[in-house]
Design a protein around this nucleic acid. Structure first.
Lengths: 184, 184
DNA sequence: TTACTTGCAAATTATTTGCAATAAT
DNA sequence: ATTATTGCAAATAATTTGCAAGTAA
């Protein structure tokens, strides 16, 4: 059901964006980093790009492009999927957002700034994603890159593992799947 | 996507050394592992599945589903894309093939058995994928999983980095991009 | 025989692209 | 004023699915 509400003009968007509660210093830093990046690259600063960045940094956790698009839509931001994808690319390029593949259909994104870097363990049974961080692994990566003549920019490490804990969704999953067993 | 280089660099030699041709004995083992897996799971052994497995283990390096499909077609095997995808899933499930996302359109696969585990560095400039291995990283991963109650099955680590060597394909790439895309 | 697996083609999903309108510089 | 960026819809790319026929167990 499409709502035929009058469309918010760019100017209104900009005004609204500027009057948002100045929650955290972090946000300002993030926006500043993005602005500088855009300027350096000769890209333009647009209200859409600001809004996307702000939305990403307003919540924690992983998300995919479409989830972000829908969240924006629900907040009455008329920002197209194309712009969401475009902006995500830019944010990945300037390292404010990281891109992960958890082995499934689409890419997942995650904000980077203000958080310690972490890696992921994906449960083979229930698919849930857990985080961990390990400085020694990071150290080794730096060492490897140095020795091979690379200047490391980013990395993603995913571990696929069987969860041996009792609170894993595994059994629930099994119950569901046994009804529709197929060739897989 | 990998670009054909004119002259093999030291780095490429090292990479190549990691991906030598398999022994015949190994191939038998691989087939045996697959058979056992199928039996255990109640899946059927079919000639198509054997052929796909054999094709994967007959060559080195990364490949994607469509490349594999085309290779099979060229050898006059009438195996559908659906079967290729299906079989790849099975091979990943039984750990004979690993699945990697290098951050782009599709997934890449790689045979696992008979090779030391390695991780990947993707050059931000030319997109070429290099391999490395580091036992300390593996150790740390095991430790992390143990402490978090996971039984590790597989992992993928990708480092995205800028190549600082002079023999990076970056410039060649730039030059080639003005022409038409070719080979694969 | 039973029902899993196949090839084919159509469907689906995620992402990209063409284009005219709009807005940043 | 110039041209990057936008929203929209159509297009594409990768993968999955439905179905009838084939075949492993």
């Amino acid at each position: 059901m499409k709502v035929a509400a009058k469309r918010e003009t760019k100017k209104e968007q900009r005004t609204r964006a500027n009057t948002q509660a100045p929650e955290v210093k972090e946000r300002e830093s993030v926006e500043h980093i993005f602005r500088e990046f855009l300027k350096k690259k000769g890209y333009r600063a647009t209200p859409e790009r600001d809004i996307v960045l702000r939305e990403i940094y307003s919540a924690a956790g992983h998300f995919d492009a479409d989830e972000l698009f829908i969240k924006l839509k629900q907040k009455n931001h008329n920002i197209s999927r194309a712009t969401v994808y475009n902006t995500l690319d830019l944010l990945v390029e300037c390292n404010l957002v990281s891109q992960n593949s958890f082995g499934h259909k689409h890419l997942h994104y995650e904000r980077v700034y203000g958080y310690d870097h972490h890696d992921h363990i994906v449960c083979n049974q229930c698919g849930e994603v857990f985080e961990f961080s390990n400085p020694k692994i990071e150290e080794q990566q730096d060492a490897v890159c140095k020795s091979m003549g690379f200047d490391i920019r980013q990395h993603t490490l995913q571990i696929f593992a069987d969860c041996v804990k009792t609170d894993c969704d595994y059994k629930k999953r099994q119950a569901e799947q046994s009804q529709t067993k197929s060739q897989r």
